[in-house]
Design a protein around this nucleic acid. Sequence first.
RNA 1: GGCGGCGUAGCUCAGUUGGUUAGAGCGCGGGAUUCAUAAGCCUGAGGUCGAAGGUUCGACUCCUUCCGCCGCUACCA
Length: 669
Amino acid sequence: MRRIVVTTALKYANGPIHLGHMVEDIQTDIWVRYHKMAGNECHYFCADDAHGTPIMIRAREEGITPEELIERAKREHKADFDAFMIDFDNYYTTHSPENKHFSELFFQRLLKAGAIVKHTVEQAYCEKDKIWLPDRFIRGTCPKCKAPDQYGDSCEVCSSTYQPTELIEPKCSVCGTAPVRKESEHYFFRLEVFGTKVKELIDSGYTHRSIGNKLDEWFKSGLKDWDISRDGPYFGFKIPGEDDKYFYVWFDAPIGYMASAQNYFERAGVDFEKIWNSPEYEIYHFIGKDIVYFHALFWPAMLMGAGFRTANKLFIHGFITVNGVKMSKSRGTFINASTYRKHLDPQYLRYYYAAKLTGGIDDIDLSLDDFVAKVNSDLVGKLANLASRSGPMLTGKLDSMLGELDEDGTALVKNIAAAKADILANYEKLDFAAVVRSVMALTDQANKYVDDNQPWALIKTDKEKTRKVLTAVLNSVRMLTIYFKPVLPVFAEKIEKFLNVAPLKFNDVESIIVNHKINVFERLVERIEQEKVNAMLEESKPAQAQPVEPAAPQMQYEELAPECTIEDFTKIDLRIAKVISAKKVEGADKLLQLELDLGFAKKNVFAGISKYYKPEELVGRKVVCAANLKPRKMKFGISEGMILAASLGDSEASVLGVDEKAQPGYRIH
RNA sequence: GGCGGCGUAGCUCAGUUGGUUAGAGCGCGGGAUUCAUAAGCCUGAGGUCGAAGGUUCGACUCCUUCCGCCGCUACCA
């Protein structure tokens, strides 16, 4: 018997569970149920990730305490997971005494190991709200494309990334005042101390191979010290020996795996340390590819530094797309778990995800048309129908008694049982798509057996022979259900009740039930109606649909810049200039190097327009130049100005020209 | 631009260490049935496996280049 501990990524308490989260938890839950049914000891832990600035601010906005907020979030999260039959052994929170204990323990051990240092950092601080602002809480105009109201770390319009200090007119996203820069001393975790050991871990098969390549990039570029502290006010655990410094949320989050496990094992009267550090136990983390960095670098290094064992392996999955594209609020495809379950049976989603999951890191697509078709045809049309076309006949006309098997029936059932090893192997390697394919192929065989034997005709002439046929069919149903039980727990329960048998395990496929009384048949699953899917999408569309909806189709005009005075305007000295020469910049993607004649002077200017203009198209043209711009040193030289061009987003650009009369050097007023 | 991933029938996807006429489900056409949640069975059509080269006796499968989409990242003053 194997002993296994698995975790799924902690859920942030700041938002609801959506169908993207569910990929991971359904995948994991299926795997856990598979192990339990196979007779292994398997524990499944998760928790809410409850700390950090966003939660503190959200609570403030709602006028409640962070504790109240995270308590509510946890309740909602758990309700969603219960509805989707995610069978955690413990769903805990990082805001717990166990987690506090472990966080302090990790910190102290890392300190002792010489892996913690202090650096002074400069950060944005809002003097009005009296809080330090993470990048996401600073908003301002994108320094690259000038799109207004962008996050402090990246622009959603041009998708460039930058430092919050580069933002134009940065504002605190809570109160709108401009943040100030303040210095503070922070604790840093020296990752490089464990760099070699972590590299060895990864090389030994800790992650998927393709992920290993990605990780290599990080190793090559050098492991930087990781800032693990935050200044108060902050919702989290205070750092020992400090008055107003807290552990960064990502420091105590993965520790939450251990805290959740410990909380469970203590209640069960089991010594946690013996389990977590015991070679008898295998430990696996299921995560999405978005948080590989934390789980493949930081977390193993933390564990090593604190003297704990690392997990055996990370199981990494891809993202979910809906109808082939990223989940989108305006399309209504950003579907919360709570919205889904109002309209549709969670087992449908478990089945569909199972049919798509191969254990790889590719994104998986929830194609809603395919979803409806697959569930209706596989689950309803084939599997449920198999029971429905045989059960009622036995209960209605043959006293609900199973008989023996005939020769063909034995062959059918043996064939189904023979697939066990293969199916278990596919469960083991997370290739649930292969499981679904092979079980459905077996279901086809069973349906064919029904057609071949025509019990509806046979019963008119030979009741006992019919009983044999139906016994074979219902034994098939039982076995197919066993195979699907990790995916469809409620379906399996209904079959257990219908067939009047104890909870099914994998080993039960090796036996058959004969001369056995069954219960009356009840419907197992309902067909999906397209209207339900539509209603779910409709409800997922944002109520405050204004920002994205009307402008969305084509013309996304940039917002008008804040008002300025004529004095502001005249600060910029715009001149007519003639392009003397233009050439592509070697090694640069978007830059053209232009030599401009301003009449009284010549200037060297780099312009990011090579995507839109060939150099020869520009030579000889008169353009508008911002001539008094402070020269800027760029990678390829000094740019002494800027030429004006009009654009809409990223897709096009038009360099401004002038009437023939205007000569180089004329000023534009 | 760099790095990584993907590109197989109308749709969603399998294709194991390269080996005979490339598969499944759904959808579509035809047929025989009617027990069943308008489900099931038989059968047909449909793909130059993104493109072009190369390695090989032989490539969807390996290598190179290119095209298209996605992610991360960068020099768009």
